[in-house]
Amino acid sequence: MLGLVVALVVNALLLAALGANPVTAYSTILSAALGSVAGLAQTLNRTTPLLLGASAVAFAMRAGYVNLGIDGQIYAGAILATGVAFLLDGWPAVVLLPVVLLAGLVGGGLLASIPAWLRATRGINELFVTVMLNFVALFLAEYLATGPWTDPVAGEAITVPISAAADLPRLLPGGGHAGILLALPVAVGLSLWLARTRSGFEFRAAGSNPLAAGFGGVRLVRIGVVALVVAGALGGLAGAIEVTGVHSRLLTGLTPNFGYMAVLIAVLARRSPVATIPVAFAFAVLIVGADSLQRSVGLPPSAVLLFQAVVVVSILAFETARGRRLVARLVQATRRSPGRRRAGGVA
């Protein structure tokens, strides 16, 4: 909590340094993101990929794996979803939409199976492989969006639109799509599975003490593969939702660092998929709010990255043992100082 307060203060100072009144800036953020139905729709749209990504990352972290590749998996899922939507052009929505979303799952899972396989057979740290694949997937998407699938009229890295039958149903006016209805059960389901099932217990055991879990008969290699591939598939689903819900096509600006944000959210939520729900929502509020700050104060969209990082760094600092001791000492000092002053007054 204290970390959050510090973060808000530091961010207020940052805003002031940029020439914005922090109070109006904060209220602009809140009113833009939550003050209207259209704003709320935008916020929920941003929450969806963040929530899917963060619960996927948190899920893999529980088993002891770091998936930094959500960005790449979003692109992989979006690529396969778009491809399938092109291929099945003309099919009715009832069939097409589920198939396209499934294609997203498969795309993300396929990309994540590379680090999973390398980890399982060669023990290679998945962290580095997932990051490298982010770039591979991004360039593949750029190739498709400028080459074979390109929209010749657009003149930029953007494909022709997919069939309207593959669009996600709208939930709210202002473009709010139904993706959030997929993301919420995923986050809750992952947490329930981890907490309530036998395999979920094995999963957590593998993450907290692999040696003991291994001796206890847990198949560690299989858990690693499941953790990474499932996380990748959820990232891919987020990509398919971005395509079918927001853009109706594949383009290169699909993820403004959602993947890195997802890791931060998972860390803040202490690796609990269900706890990523409020954190992802808060991050989405920041993103949408910062978009409106861009119009009023002239902040670049990436400034929101800075604000999020400040929040995470402050909270990380105050979560450590020494950080907490530091806070305790500060609190004591502030409590003691008025007493001392009074004593001095008497003397």
Binding site: L127, N257, Y260, L264, P300, S302, F307, Q308, L316, R322
Partner: peptide
């Protein structure tokens, strides 16, 4: 000093760096 996890701190500062560089240029 605080002995926080290097990987999570590194990632948070990675984001901080990406945001700061863009903000600095725009500023």
């Amino acid at each position: 000093h605080l002995q926080a996890n290097q990987i999570t701190v590194g990632l948070a500062l990675l984001i901080l760096g990406l945001g700061a560089s863009s903000l600095l240029y725009r500023g």
